[in-house]
Computed example of a mutant assay.
Amino acid sequence: MDRRAVRDYLLSRPEAEEDFPFGPDVAVFKIKGKMFATVGRLDGVDCTNLKCDPDEAQALRDIFTGVIPGYHMNKKHWNTVLLDGSVPDYEIERLMDRSYGLIVRGLRKVEREALELAYGADTIYR
């Protein structure tokens, strides 16, 4: 996946918004004001930071050379995924969905239930 495809996919998630609080080089994707992804560059390579379950985060790092501890993030809960072709597109999409779902689960109950009602739980937690 390239940077543009990642951006488009992240923005396709219900009520996802793009922001640039760290300057024009790092796009931040949020749901209800909570960050679920960033897209930027690391050592000249496009990449995305995604929230992840801590146990799964380490397993992914062991499996894929293009998954490393979250750059400038809590390394227990975030991974940086290099968009260099080393991680299959379907896996990147799964990780983006998982990151979004983890943040939605952490929203206030009223916000979470409104999203589930409007879009369906299957869409939110795919």
Rank of each mutant, 00 (worst) to 15 (best):
Gln58Ile: 13
Phe22Glu: 13
Lys30Thr: 14
Lys34Met: 10
Asn49Arg: 04
Met35Lys: 01
Gly40Gln: 04
Pro54Ser: 07
Ile31Pro: 07
Asn49Ser: 13
Ala59Gln: 13
Gly44Gln: 08
Ala37Thr: 10
Cys52Ile: 00
Phe20Arg: 12
Asp53His: 09
Lys32Asn: 15
Ile31Gly: 05
Gly40Val: 10
Asp19Lys: 12
Thr38Gly: 10
Thr48Arg: 05
Ala37Phe: 03
Gly44Asp: 10
Leu50Phe: 02
Arg41Ala: 13
Cys47Phe: 10
Phe29Thr: 07
Phe22Cys: 09
Arg41Cys: 10
Asp43Val: 03
Val26Thr: 15
Gln58Asp: 14
Pro24Glu: 15
Ile31Val: 15
Phe29Gly: 09
Asn49Gln: 09
Phe36Tyr: 12
Asp43Gln: 12
Phe36His: 09
Asp55Gly: 11
Lys30His: 11
Arg41Phe: 10
Thr38Trp: 02
Pro21Asp: 06
Met35His: 00
Phe22Val: 10
Ala59Val: 13
Val39Asn: 02
Glu56Ser: 09
Asp55Trp: 01
Lys34Cys: 06
Glu56Trp: 07
Asp53Gln: 08
Lys32Ala: 15
Ala57Asp: 02
Gln58Arg: 14
Ala57Lys: 00
Glu17Lys: 09
Phe29His: 04
Gly33Ala: 11
Pro24Cys: 01
Gly44Thr: 08
Glu18Asp: 10
Ala59Phe: 00
Lys30Phe: 00
Arg41Pro: 03
Gln58Val: 15
Phe22Arg: 06
Asp19Glu: 15
Leu50Thr: 04
Val28Pro: 08
Lys34Glu: 15
Glu18Trp: 00
Phe29Glu: 01
Gly23Met: 14
Glu18Phe: 00
Glu18His: 03
Gly44Pro: 10
Asp43Cys: 01
Thr38Asn: 09
Phe29Asp: 12
Gly44Cys: 07
Val28Gln: 02
Glu17Ser: 08
Gln58Asn: 03
Gly23Gln: 11
Asp53Asn: 12
Lys30Leu: 07
Lys51Pro: 03
Glu17His: 05
Leu42Arg: 14
Lys32Phe: 06
Val26Gly: 12
Asp53Met: 05
Asp46Ile: 05
Phe29Ile: 14
Thr38His: 00
Asp19Leu: 09
Val26Arg: 10
Ile31Ala: 05
Thr48His: 04
Gly40Glu: 14
Phe20Pro: 05
Phe22Asp: 14
Asp19Ala: 14
Ala37Arg: 06
Arg41Met: 15
Asp19Asn: 07
Phe29Leu: 03
